[in-house]
Amino acid sequence: MIRKAKISDVGTIMTIINETVKEMKSYGNNQWDENYPNSETFINDIKNDSLYVYEEDNNIKGFICIDCNQAAEYENLNWSLNEKCMVAHRIAVNTKFRNSGIATKLMSFCEELALKEGIIYIKTDTYSLNTKMNSLFKKLGYKFIGEVKFLSKEKAFYCYEKILK
Rank of each mutant, 00 (worst) to 15 (best):
F144R: 08
R98A: 02
D45F: 08
C68Y: 05
C159L: 11
K143Y: 10
S26W: 09
G62L: 06
E73L: 08
N69Y: 11
G101L: 12
T20A: 13
I145G: 04
E73M: 08
S39N: 13
Y160N: 04
E55K: 08
E75A: 14
N94P: 00
S128R: 06
L115W: 01
S128V: 09
P37E: 06
Y142V: 06
I120H: 15
K123G: 04
Y127G: 01
E83V: 12
R98C: 01
W79A: 03
L77Y: 06
A92E: 03
K84R: 15
K138E: 14
I91T: 04
I60G: 03
G118K: 06
N59Y: 12
D45I: 09
R90F: 03
N35G: 10
S108I: 07
K149P: 05
C110E: 01
M133R: 00
T126G: 02
E117N: 13
A103D: 00
I66D: 00
I64K: 00
K155H: 11
S50M: 08
K4T: 11
K162T: 01
G62S: 12
K143F: 10
E111T: 07
F144E: 08
F150R: 14
E23D: 07
G141R: 06
A88Y: 00
K149W: 07
D57G: 04
N38D: 15
L81P: 05
D57N: 15
G101W: 11
E111H: 07
V21R: 00
L106I: 13
L115A: 04
E117H: 13
L81H: 13
F42R: 07
T95E: 10
G62H: 05
Y27D: 10
S100A: 14
I13H: 03
E83Y: 05
E154I: 07
R98E: 01
R3Y: 12
S50T: 14
S80W: 07
I163N: 12
I145W: 02
E117V: 06
S152M: 11
K139H: 15
I119L: 04
K22D: 14
E19K: 15
G141I: 06
I122R: 02
L164E: 01
Q70T: 12
K155P: 04
T104K: 13
S80A: 14
K123R: 15
D33T: 08
I46Y: 01
L77G: 04
L113T: 06
M1E: 13
L115V: 11
K4W: 07
I122T: 00
F150Y: 15
M14I: 14
A114S: 10
E19L: 10
S39P: 07
F157A: 00
Y27H: 14
I163P: 03
G62F: 03
A114G: 08
Y52D: 02
S8M: 07
E112I: 04
L151W: 09
E154S: 15
K116Q: 13
D45L: 12
N76G: 12
G118M: 09
